[in-house]
C-alpha cells in the first residue's frame, strides 16, 4: 500500500492537477438547463404582466399571481437542481450579486408596470413583461454559470 513516504512528488503533483481538472469538467458538465431558465423568464414575465390587471392607487391589492409565481419559481429551482445534479453549498459573490440583481430588475419592472397602468398606458405593460422575460432568462443563466465557475475555482 502507498504510504506518505513512498509517494513520488511528481505523482502527488499529478493527483493535485487532476483534481483541478475534475472541478473544471464538473463546472462544464453542470450547464444551466436552457428550458428551465426560459421557464424562470416566463414566470417573471407573467408576474410583471399581472400588473396590468391591478388598480394602482389607494385601493391597490397585490395580485394573487405573486404568490403563485414565487411557488412556481421554487418548483423550477428544484427542477434545476435535479436536472443538473448539483446542490451548491456556496454560490459565490458573483452569483449572489447576479441573483439579487435579478430580483431587483423584477421589482423595478413591476413598479414601472404599475406606473404605466396608473397613467392609462396598460398596453405598455406588454413591453415591461417582455423585458422581464429577457432579463430574467439571461440573469438566471449568468447566475447559474457564476455558481458553477465558483466550484471550479479552488
Amino acid at each position: 500500500m502507498a504510504t506518505h513516504h513512498s509517494v513520488d512528488p511528481s505523482h502527488a503533483a499529478q493527483a493535485l492537477r487532476t483534481l483541478d481538472g475534475d472541478r473544471t469538467r464538473l463546472a462544464v458538465a453542470a450547464r444551466p438547463p436552457a428550458a428551465l431558465m426560459v421557464a424562470l423568464g416566463a414566470l417573471a414575465a407573467w408576474w410583471v404582466g399581472a400588473a396590468a390587471g391591478t388598480s394602482p392607487g389607494a385601493g391597490y391589492t397585490p395580485p394573487t399571481s405573486s404568490w403563485l409565481a414565487v411557488a412556481a419559481a421554487v418548483g423550477v429551482a428544484y427542477a434545476v437542481r435535479t436536472r443538473t445534479g448539483v446542490r451548491f453549498r456556496r454560490a459565490g459573490a458573483r452569483a449572489t450579486i447576479t441573483a439579487a440583481a435579478l430580483v431587483a430588475v423584477c421589482l423595478v419592472l413591476y413598479s414601472v408596470s404599475l406606473a404605466l397602468v396608473s397613467a392609462g398606458a396598460t398596453w405598455a405593460v406588454a413591453l415591461t413583461s417582455l423585458a422581464a422575460f429577457a432579463a430574467v432568462t439571461w440573469l438566471s443563466t449568468v447566475a447559474y454559470r457564476a455558481a458553477a465557475d465558483h466550484v471550479a475555482r479552488a
Partner: peptide
C-alpha cells in the same frame, strides 16, 4: 490510505466544493 486511491481522491475532490452531487454527474465527470 482510503482517500489516496485515485478514483476515491477524485470523488472527494469533486464533493469538497459543493453540498451534494448526483451519482450520474459524478460518473460522467
Amino acid at each position: 490510505e482510503i482517500i489516496h486511491a485515485p478514483v476515491r481522491l477524485r470523488i472527494c475532490g469533486l464533493l469538497r466544493r459543493v453540498d451534494q452531487l448526483e451519482f450520474g454527474l459524478v460518473r460522467q465527470t
